[in-house]
Amino acid sequence: MSNTRKVVLLIESSRAYGRGLLRGIAKYSRLHGPWMFYRESPFYLKSDSLRKMISHIKEWGATGIIVREQEGLDEILALGLPTIVSPLTERFIPGVPSIYTDCFAIAKLGAEYFLKMGFRNFAFCGYYHKPPFAWSEDRAKVFNEIIAQAGFETHIYVPSKPQKLPPWEKEQLILANWLKELPKPIAIMTCADDRSQNVIDACKIANIKVPEEIAILGTDNDEIVCDLSFPPLSSVALNIEKAGYEAAELLDAGMKGQKMEAKLLLVQPFGVVTRQSTEVMAIEDRDVAEAIRYIRKNPKNMTQVNDIATAIGTSRRSLERKFKKMLGRSIYAEIRRLRVEQMACFLLETNYSILRIARIFGFAGAKHVSRYFRKEKGISPQAYRKQYSLK
């Protein structure tokens, strides 16, 4: 028992981000521990003061800490234990390893998702107050840059006087008025799923239809938050568990006496989970919109271009020409893109073999589906699973 790691976990568990980190840490502990954990008291019990909590940590004989940025962080770091921090207002905490989201990859994925849907109007809604959230600012900046590179403008929600977060009743009216003034139809990316829920609520006050007038995409893929919204929210999914596992692995090295480099552990996105808040195509051409709906409804079928043209009642040549004009890509490229996105979900959400996934999607063997997948993603299905799934 004397060699058992005693790890302090000061991580909230009410949101998907914190729960994901905890799942990754738990998996590492099962494989390489077991560890003992100290956590804050649940909400239905009286919480200790910071002074008492630090006293308990010392008496318990903790050997390492993983903590979200919070009040009293300096006192926690002063304990001198191997510590990893997940920042909130900062991008990293000097002198210690930090867990931070890959905001460039997240915002780029969101921007490209909307561009491929044919939108021409874009907006971003984050949190703007003092102190600012670094991750919200970073995602807004990158989203704006990617949209600008595509030749479009991003409308960014910024209250006239950023201050402490105002009461929701007050901000809801400000946000609703901003939404009314935006050009329609428009695609809005938010910094987080909670913010997406705010936007949906403000849309209801403003009598704005979602997704017909405003399509909304969040981040974190917090299933509870997404499903509590109406319509349910689409969201960028993050590989949070993998980051939790890697944080535990690094902490373990530190608890063994190895030097922990003060580096960033990046939380990577791996795709967009589409729900009703973005189930719309901002495409004026009826044939193109109908064709994309047909492809989305049949992602596992070996759909041919002629099948689509026949189903929507137009000629193949006419449909190909319209696709190139409206989306800048061929019908076949769109079929492959949507099918590969579905394959990627199977790779990350199941333990199915590549051969089994190949057969689900109508391929004769693993080699055939691997070539198909690589053309879209640039890597093999095996490499994609290894890179984005939990260890």
Rank of each mutant, 00 (worst) to 15 (best):
I188K: 00
V158P: 04
L175A: 06
P167N: 13
C103H: 10
D227F: 10
V210M: 01
L179E: 01
V158W: 08
Q172L: 15
I99V: 02
Q163D: 14
E171H: 15
K209N: 13
F152K: 07
G126W: 00
K184P: 00
K170S: 13
I216A: 03
N121G: 08
K130G: 12
G95A: 06
K164E: 13
T190H: 03
A192Q: 03
I93F: 03
L173V: 15
K161E: 15
R91K: 11
F104I: 14
P131T: 08
P183M: 05
C103I: 10
F133T: 09
F122Q: 01
E145L: 10
E171S: 14
A176R: 04
F133G: 12
L217S: 02
K164I: 15
F152D: 05
I146F: 06
W178D: 00
K209C: 14
L175C: 06
F119T: 03
F124Q: 03
G118L: 07
S136T: 06
A192C: 07
Q172M: 14
L217P: 01
V96R: 03
C203M: 06
P132E: 06
I106W: 01
N221P: 08
C125P: 08
V210F: 01
E223T: 11
A192N: 05
Q149I: 11
I147L: 08
W168T: 15
K204F: 14
D220R: 03
I147Q: 05
D220G: 04
I208C: 10
Q149L: 13
W135T: 14
T154I: 08
K209D: 11
